[in-house]
Simulated scan of single mutants.
Amino acid sequence: MIANFDDEINVKYEEITDKNPLNPTLNPTLNQASIDKGHIKIRNRPETIIHDKPQPPFPIHEKSSIISGFGRGSSELGIPTANIPIQDELNNLQTGIFYGWSKIHPNPNLKDSTEKRIDGNEIIFNHGNKLIAKELCIFPMVMSIGWNPFYDNKQKAAEIHIINKFNDNFYGAKIEYIVLGYIRPELNYTTKEALIKDINLDIKIAKEILSKPEYEKYKDELKD
């Protein structure tokens, strides 16, 4: 199986780790990726290794409340994310980008409430009760764990982008997720446009891997 991605992305190639959160090195151009024989190769970007099936410590199956974040994913990038608390199993992972499956669980027993986001803006917690049935299915996801060096975050965060278009927010709902593998370490970028292109490339890679039977079958673990 080969999938070609003809994206050209300028990145400040930084591998972000717990011990060394900011370590700038190169500024390469990233222009083509292919999935072939268990590897995703992109020039000047860390290689993604695809195993025949998830390898330890995966799968990681958790359920978390969706909390407020910075609001940048949707407003600035057009790629909305659900922020979740970093539980122990996630905190023990290498920082970077991961993939898997996810599902939203509304809480119909809770009424709408208003809370202040980190940036001071008020947001409505509707606990997922505005979602319709087709938005409560199991969807592929990509997850970011780390400091997001492009925005120079001071606090480690975990964010999930559910690969589906939703008509409303779902702050305060529960999100059940299963993490199945790792795509790459965190990187920094020369422009916001480059960041968006790279996230979209991560999404393409995740969807390609999750279409493999040994990864797709984990959807069943999120069924009611």
Results as ranks from 00 to 15, higher is better:
M1G: 11
I2L: 08
A3R: 09
D6E: 05
D6N: 11
E8R: 13
V11D: 04
E14M: 12
I16M: 07
N20R: 12
L22K: 14
T25M: 07
T29Y: 15
N31G: 13
D36I: 06
R43I: 14
N44I: 03
R45S: 15
H51F: 13
D52R: 05
P54S: 01
F58P: 11
P59L: 01
I60F: 03
I60A: 04
E62F: 02
K63M: 08
I66K: 04
S68E: 11
S68G: 06
G71I: 07
R72N: 14
S75Y: 06
P80K: 05
T81K: 08
I84Y: 05
D88W: 00
E89H: 09
G96R: 06
Y99Q: 00
G100W: 03
S102E: 04
K103R: 15
N107S: 09
N109P: 00
D112Y: 08
I124C: 12
N126A: 06
L131S: 04
K134F: 04
C137Q: 14
I138S: 02
P140N: 03
P140V: 01
M141H: 05
I145A: 06
P149Q: 02
Y151W: 12
K154R: 08
K156A: 12
E159Q: 03
I160K: 01
D168W: 08
G172Y: 08
A173S: 15
K174G: 04
I175L: 09
I178E: 08
I183M: 07
R184D: 13
R184S: 15
R184I: 07
R184C: 13
L187K: 01
T190R: 13
D202F: 09
I203K: 12
K204C: 10
K204D: 14
K207G: 06
I209W: 10
K212N: 06
E214P: 05
Y215F: 15
K217C: 10
D224H: 00
